[in-house]
């Protein structure tokens, strides 16, 4: 199936129905209808200013759409457990491990379970050495790994990543990509932004292509890269400037 259907089916996890977002008279996102299936890695692509980060925030619920609506399927419509990793990780002014236990605490994890779970997460991301260091003095790569470990500890059913590697060096990028694959194997639904075509090829099951506040193509990854359906996507895949 090359064509991704925008109509929800039984395998749908999340659907956006005619969503628009207007800020101070500027329509930043226009009439987006999108349905995301229960499994897989969705990569959101598009030129700068296309509205990728905004779409991510609407999906995660950090912002509410000015028109249209968001529907979660299953679990009687309640949003599932979710987490988000930002382009610039937000670190609380505490130790690395305290950043993780804090997230567990506000999620309602019992006090005595927090430290073991946080420790497990740090261990998985190779951060136990720096567990007691202040989070804000860690390097950019370490901070992003800590943000992933924090998300990991929350055991999200769906994880949003907003350009998580754009400010990192290659080794740190590799670590983030490995983490995404790990999350995927755990059964976590991934939705991620990137403007790195190679990264998208490595990770994507399907691609949402945004241009000027509209979703102009939602396609299986291999089809998107080999036979894009729109002129803009074709140009983008060839590496030309699109806006």
């Amino acid at each position: 199936m090359n064509d991704m259907n925008t109509a929800p089916t039984s395998a749908t996890m999340l659907a956006m129905e005619g969503v628009a977002f207007t800020h101070r008279g500027h329509a930043l996102l226009k009439d987006v209808s999108l349905s995301l299936s229960r499994h897989g890695n969705t990569i959101v692509m598009g030129p700068n200013g296309a509205g990728k980060s905004l779409l991510m925030r609407l999906l995660h619920g950090l912002l509410s759409p000015t028109h249209g609506r968001l529907r979660w399927h299953g679990q009687s419509g309640r949003p599932p457990r979710q987490a988000m990793v930002f382009q610039r990780p937000v670190m609380l002014r505490r130790s690395a491990i305290a950043n993780v236990t804090y997230a567990l605490a506000v999620q309602g994890t019992r006090w005595r379970d927090r430290r073991p779970q946080a420790w497990d997460a740090l261990e998985r991301f190779g951060l136990t050495e720096i567990a007691h260091r202040p989070a804000r003095v860690l390097s950019g790569g370490e901070q992003q790994r800590l943000a992933l470990a924090r998300a990991w500890a929350l055991r999200p059913e769906i994880l949003f990543l907003d350009e998580p590697t754009s400010a990192l060096d290659p080794a740190a990028i590799k670590a983030v990509e490995d983490a995404v694959i790990d999350f995927h194997h755990q059964g976590t639904r991934i939705v991620m932004n990137t403007h790195d075509l190679h990264q998208a090829r490595r990770l994507a099951d399907d691609i949402v292509f945004l241009c000027q506040g509209r979703v102009i193509e939602h396609n299986q990854a291999d089809s998107f890269f080999t036979t894009p359906r729109t002129r803009e996507a074709a140009a983008f895949v060839r590496g030309e400037l699109v806006w």
Binding site: L62, F86, V90, Y102, Q107
Partner: peptide, 23 residues
């Protein structure tokens, strides 16, 4: 600085008060 991250954690504003004071 923290608003998006705390909202992502689904931290209520009342719960955010001690967090911000501590930080």
């Amino acid at each position: 600085e923290y608003r998006e991250q705390l909202t992502s954690f689904r931290v209520s504003r009342v719960r955010a008060i001690p967090t911000l004071l501590w930080d």
